[in-house]
Nucleic acid binder design. Sequence first.
RNA 1: GGCGAGGUAGCCAAGUGGUAAGGCCGAGGUUUGCAAAACCUUUAUCGCGAGUUCGAUUCUCGCCCUCGCCUCCA
Length: 473
Amino acid sequence: MATTVTLQDSMTREPREVAPIDGETYRFYCCGPTVYGVAHIGNFRTFVVQDTFRRVLECAGIATKHVRNVTDVDDKTIRESQAQGQSLRDFTTHWKDKFNNDCVSLNMLKPHIEPGAVDHIDHQIRMIEVLIEKGNAYEKEGSVYFSVKSYPDYGRLSRVADRELRLGAAQTANDSDEYDKDSLADFVLWKGRKPEDGDNYWPSPWGEGRPGWHLECSAMSLEYLGETFDMHSGGVDLMFPHHENEIAQSECCSGSTFVHHWFHITHLLVDGGKMAKSSGNFYTLVDLEEKGYTAEEMRYVFLSGHYRHHLNFTLDSLLASRQAISRLSRFEKALAERAEISEAPAYDAARQIGEAGPFQPAFKALCRDLNTPDALGKIFTAIKSIDTETLAQATAAKLYQQYHFVLAALGLKLVTKDDAAEDIPEDIKAMAEERWQARAAKEWAESDRLRDALAEVGWLVQDGKEDYTVTRK
RNA sequence: GGCGAGGUAGCCAAGUGGUAAGGCCGAGGUUUGCAAAACCUUUAUCGCGAGUUCGAUUCUCGCCCUCGCCUCCA
C-alpha cells in the first residue's frame, strides 16, 4: 500500500514527498529534551507531533528509524544538579525517567534510539578533530570554535543574511559568553574546563572540558543515521542557531549533504501568548492531572491544531477534547459490540490494517502535510454517516478495523474511566439501591431526595431502562 | 530594527476562485416520573479598503490589529 505522504520542508518551504533515501527505511532525528527539570506541554507538542508523523509514515507502509536524543550535559543541567547536590548523571537520569513517563502517558511510541550526549563525547571529539584539520574550527585557550566564515552556506535554513550583525550586537551587549571567539557569530564546539563546571569535565586533545551543545546532535545523528539521512526535526526555535550550526558542522565534517528534509513544529501558545512561568500560564502534565485532566485529552488538544500554526491552548480546549474523545469512544464501543470484538488491536497490528474505508479522507488528510485537525473533522463526518445499530456483524468488524487504523495513525487510545465503577463505597451503593427501589415503587419524592443526597456527597445517579449507574461526579 | 506566522461563528479550529469541515458551548427537539446521559436538528459570508475576475473568504496591493522568533529555549 504505497500511500504518498507529503510534508512541508522548512528548508525549501514547500511540501515534499516523504520517501526514504535508501528506499527502505525512513531515518529521522528529533532534537530531544534537555533534562534539567519537568518538560512542559509546549515541549510535548513538538514530540507528540513528531510521534504522529512517525505513526502516519508507518501506517502508510514506510518503515522508520526514529532517533531522539537527550541533552544531559549543558549549563543548565550542570548548574541545577549542583544546586541539588547530585551528580550530573543521577540528576539527569531522574528527569529523563520523568520525561519518559510522560511520553508513555501521551501514548508516544518509543524512539528506536535515545542517545545521550555524555555517552558520545568521543564521537564529538572525533568530529572536532576533523573540523580543525579541515580548517573549519580553531582552538583558543582550551576551547574550540567553529568558524562560521569557513562555511559560505551558513544561514540557508533560517535565511537571515544579516543575522550575524544583530547576533553580534546582542552578544556584545550582554557579554554572557566569556569564551574568546574570533568572530561573534562563531559558536563553541568544545568548552574548556571552568571552575563552575565542578566534576563535569572530560579529557580531550585541547585539555579538559566539555562538549558544546550544538555538536551533540551532529555527532549522534552521524553515529546512528549516517552522514546523510532523511529528516531532522525540532521546535521552530531550534532553526536558528541550533540547526544552522548543525548543518555547518556536519556538512563541513562529512563533505556531503546533512539531511534531506527539515521539519519544524510551531510553538504552542497558552491563553494567546507565550508560555512562561512568570506569566502564570506554564503547564506540565502533572499540573493538568492535578486539575483532573488526562494526558490523552492533552494529546487530543495537540492534534486539534496544525503543526505549522500556533496552537492556542486553554483549559477550555481540554474540556472540549474530553467531550470529543468521549464521542469517538462511544462510537468505538458501539462498533465493537456490533462486531462482537472485545479487544482493540495494539498499534503494530492496527497500523498494518492498511485501509481506512470510510475514514480514508481522514487518513488522506494526515498524509497531506500532517493535517491532524482536518483528519479529526473527517472522522466525525464519517462517524455521523454510520448507523452502528443497523450494521451486519461482518461489516461492523471491518469498520472496526478501519477505524482503529486511523486511530493508530493519530495515536488516540480512547481510554475512558469505566474502571471507576469498582470502587464505589458500600454505603453509596446501598443508598443508590434504596433509591432505585423507591423509584420502582414510584415514590418520586423519596427517590429524588436520595438522588440529591448522593449528589451532595459527590455521586451521580443516572437511570437506564433496566438499571442505573453510579459515577463519581 | 530584521525574519516569520496569523486575523474564519461565544471558544478552539480546517478549508476552497463559485457563496464556509469538525469539536466544544448555547438553543430547540426525541427520550425520561422529573432529571442526567444519549441521539437528532440548529447557530458564521471569512479584520478593513481597493484591484484582478463572470465570480474572492480563497489571488494582488494598501491599511489596521495580534502573536512568535532573532539570547538557553520544543
